[in-house]
């Protein structure tokens, strides 16, 4: 454990909780892509199946359980409890265009050709692109609530901090996982445009709105 990994995990946790609280307090999931949230629930489920097979630490297990629990709670709030507020018309990204290629890639490029390992790889690849329906929705409506941008910032920072963690681990532990690193780079790059808007607009007190 190093500072980048810990702050990355906490940033990820903050993102998940910000989103849950936003929906819960406003009693609305307007502006939130249910599809991205389903993808994240799939990501956590596929990756954390190792909860059943290996124990790493109390921290590791607790965080996994919290992430999975929050992911399903978010999906429940969007598709059941506050379904009436879900903006399905604007959430029109075709997720099969992500899931199918990513599934194929996980079968082709993995560390070990075994079911659990392929699911882990699938989750790493899928996570890197799972935010696309959300970013697509914002580009379609041309705006995002400020709280939604805080959510996206924390979520983007999480993988960015992990990149520093991987540099750290390579130098100090000689550890690197090429699959995670390449996917993490892709994931971070996808947020760059958003990071720019967040810094130039939201942090200056303006609402995130895109030119028509």
């Amino acid at each position: 454990m190093n500072i980048f990994r810990l702050t990355g995990d906490l940033s990820h946790l903050a993102a998940i909780i910000i989103l849950l609280l936003k929906i819960w307090k406003s009693r609305s999931c307007a502006g939130i892509s249910g599809k991205s949230q389903i993808l994240f629930a799939i990501v956590f489920t596929a990756r954390y199946l190792d909860l059943l097979t290996s124990f790493i630490s109390v921290y590791n297990t607790s965080m996994k359980v919290i992430y999975i629990g929050c992911a399903y709670a978010t999906v429940y709030l969007i598709y059941a409890k506050f379904r009436a507020t879900y903006d399905g018309n604007h959430d029109s990204f075709r997720v099969e265009f992500l899931v199918v290629p990513v599934g194929g890639l996980a079968v082709l490029i993995n560390h070990t050709f075994s079911p659990l390992e392929i699911l882990w790889t699938f989750s790493i690849y899928l996570e890197s692109v799972a935010i696309l329906p959300q970013l697509f929705m914002i580009s379609k409506t041309g705006e995002a609530e400020t709280i939604t941008t805080h959510y996206l910032f924390c979520l983007g920072m999480y993988r960015t901090l992990y990149l520093f963690n991987w540099v750290w681990r390579f130098y100090f532990e000689g550890f690197f996982d090429m699959i995670a690193i390449v996917a993490g780079l892709v994931q971070t790059v996808l947020y760059c445009d958003f990071f720019y808007l967040y810094v130039t607009k939201v942090l200056k007190g303006k609402k995130l709105s895109l030119p028509a």
């Binding site: 990994r5 995990d9 990820h12 990756r47 190792d50 290996s54 790493i56 590791n60 965080m63 996994k64 992430y67 560390h111 882990w120 992990y162 963690n165 000689g174 550890f175 690197f176 996982d177 090429m178 995670a180």
Partner: peptide, 10 residues
Amino acid sequence: AARTQQHDEL
């Protein structure tokens, strides 16, 4: 590539 037997990251 050096990697641990189990995935220890989240």
